[in-house]
Design a binder for these strands. Structure first.
Length: 119
DNA sequence: TGGTTGACCACTA
DNA sequence: CTAGTGGCCAACC
């Protein structure tokens, strides 16, 4: 009941639900969220769903990062540096990749070895 | 109204 | 090992 006015498809709804289920201090990848949503190849739409971001307070996009550990280039919270602070403030560990050019953030990527979230 | 793009990942050759 | 393509859905013009 309570249709929750879900005009979006169940896939998008699952994406929001999975992202909201990410515990504080951990991060998940687009592919992981997509797989949990029911489509391991729909990672593109996970990012699109987060861009839609109907509830930024309920959908911590900053906890969703690339498979490389880098952050989204078009972050809509205030900047990649802002996202790094948010994650660090939550206890997420960061590390410096071998190639800074690979990092959307200024030379910092999430350390999946410590902060990788597992459903 | 329809067509194209878009915060990506995994698989195949 | 590297390179290239496909897939999936919604929103925008």
């Amino acid at each position: 009941m309570a249709d929750s006015s879900s005009t979006t498809s169940p896939f998008f709804d699952e994406v929001y639900r999975v992202v909201q289920n990410i515990p504080r201090g951990y991060v998940a990848t687009y592919g992981q969220v997509a797989a949990l949503a029911g489509s391991p190849r729909a990672a593109r739409y996970v990012g699109f769903a987060l861009h839609s971001n109907p509830d930024p307070s309920l959908t911590p996009c900053h906890r969703v990062v690339f498979r490389d550990g880098s952050l989204s280039p078009g972050y809509a919270f205030g900047g990649p540096e802002r996202q790094r602070e948010l994650l660090e403030d939550e206890g997420v560990c960061f590390k410096m990749p071998r190639t800074q050019e690979n990092a959307g953030a200024p030379g910092w990527v999430v350390d999946f070895d410590k902060s990788a979230w597992q459903a």
